[in-house]
Simulated assay, not measured.
Amino acid sequence: MTAEDPLSRIDDDDYPAYTMGRAAELLGATPAFLRAIGEARLITPLRSEGGHRRYSRYQLKIAARARELVDQGMPVEAACRIVILEDQLEEARRINEEHRTAAGSHHAADA
Rank of each mutant, 00 (worst) to 15 (best):
M20H: 00
M20P: 00
M20V: 12
G21T: 09
R22Y: 07
R22P: 00
A23V: 06
A24E: 05
E25C: 00
E25H: 09
L26E: 09
L27H: 02
G28H: 05
G28I: 06
G28S: 08
A29E: 11
A29L: 02
A29G: 01
T30M: 03
A32C: 00
A32F: 01
A32N: 09
A32H: 07
L34Q: 02
L34M: 07
L34K: 02
L34R: 01
L34G: 05
R35Q: 09
R35V: 13
A36S: 13
A36P: 01
I37T: 06
I37A: 06
G38D: 12
G38R: 05
E39Y: 04
E39W: 00
E39S: 10
A40P: 05
R41H: 13
R41T: 12
L42S: 06
I43N: 04
I43R: 03
I43L: 11
I43D: 04
T44V: 11
P45A: 12
P45N: 13
P45Q: 10
P45T: 12
L46E: 15
R47I: 08
R47Q: 15
R47L: 15
E49Q: 14
E49G: 15
E49S: 13
G50D: 14
G51S: 14
G51T: 14
G51E: 14
G51W: 10
G51H: 11
H52L: 14
H52N: 15
H52W: 11
H52R: 15
R53L: 12
R54F: 11
Y55R: 09
Y55G: 10
Y55N: 11
S56C: 11
S56A: 14
S56W: 07
R57I: 03
R57G: 15
Y58I: 01
Y58F: 12
Q59P: 06
Q59R: 05
Q59I: 05
Q59W: 04
L60W: 06
L60T: 08
L60C: 08
I62M: 13
I62D: 01
I62K: 08
A63R: 05
A64I: 00
R65W: 01
A66W: 02
A66M: 03
A66K: 02
A66S: 09
R67T: 02
R67V: 01
R67Y: 06
E68I: 06
E68D: 14
L69M: 11
L69Y: 12
L69P: 04
V70D: 02
V70I: 10
D71W: 02
D71S: 13
D71G: 11
Q72C: 12
Q72K: 12
Q72V: 01
Q72A: 15
